[in-house]
């Protein structure tokens, strides 16, 4: 579970400061896909960046388990990302020199005391590639994969270290509608199977069926009544 508690984030804008996130509070429970939507520039990515510990908010707390992630030092935040947060970017952001399988294995080589043995990570990588339907493409490099396949690898990569929180930024923006729908369904299934607290940004709502909750952000403010989406 991840809880954002009264988060405010501003960016410098000339002499003044622009408020990207304005006193936002939200909770994403385990096993549920919580969608965040809103117009362009409304602050969706900023909320995700704060949740991902990639930027420290001006005020407020980010509870991941019982850790206040907003108060962590840079190094501790990095370790928290490594162990407890999976991130899927808008672009797949795969490393060009690594095969699909290696994109997953690298997650055990990011530094710190590796929690699990390499053999265990190998097993888990194969299991995850299977789960995203790419067992047949494990030895292909990003250049040899389609956009949808790349995004699947990115999703599998985000889950390798068994994170409690999965943060996803516009996963379908580079895909056609059908491919996008498949990715959304995959995320919904994995969220249920692996009981992750999934926070997913999307600005179009064609795939709203895959979302369990939907929060709308306008001008940095989240709509207080998060409404249930009927599937």
């Amino acid at each position: 579970m991840i809880t954002l508690d009264d988060i405010t984030l501003t960016f410098p804008d000339g002499d003044a400061r622009i408020t990207a996130v304005d006193h936002v509070s939200l909770t994403a429970p385990n096993g549920v896909v919580t969608g965040i939507t809103g117009p362009s520039g409304s602050g969706k990515s900023s909320i995700l960046a704060v949740a991902a510990t990639l930027i420290r908010p001006d005020s407020g707390r980010v509870w991941i388990g019982d850790t206040d992630a907003a108060a962590l030092s840079r190094d501790d935040a990095t370790a928290l990302r490594r162990d407890s947060i999976g991130i899927v970017f808008q672009q797949s952001n795969l490393l060009p020199s690594l095969t699909a399988r290696e994109q997953l294995l690298v997650m055990a080589e990011l530094g710190g005391r590796s929690r699990r043995s390499r053999a265990a990570v190998r097993l888990r990588a194969d299991d995850l590639l299977d789960a995203v339907g790419l067992s047949g493409h494990r030895d292909k490099r990003p250049a040899q994969l389609s956009g949808g396949q790349r995004q699947r690898v990115a999703i599998a990569r985000a889950l390798v270290n068994d994170p409690g929180v999965l943060l996803v930024d516009e996963p379908t923006s580079a895909l056609d509608q059908e491919r996008g729908g498949e990715i959304m369904d995959l995320l919904a299934r994995l969220t249920r199977e692996r009981q992750t607290a999934t926070l997913l940004i999307t600005h179009d709502l064609v795939h709203r069926d895959a979302l369990d909750e939907l929060i709308t952000v306008v001008d940095g403010r989240a709509s207080t009544a998060a409404h249930r989406v009927e599937a």
Binding site: N93, M107, G112, N161
Partner: peptide, 10 residues
Amino acid sequence: LKALGASTGS
């Protein structure tokens, strides 16, 4: 890699 949690040291 940093966003995924790679330490600067590594």
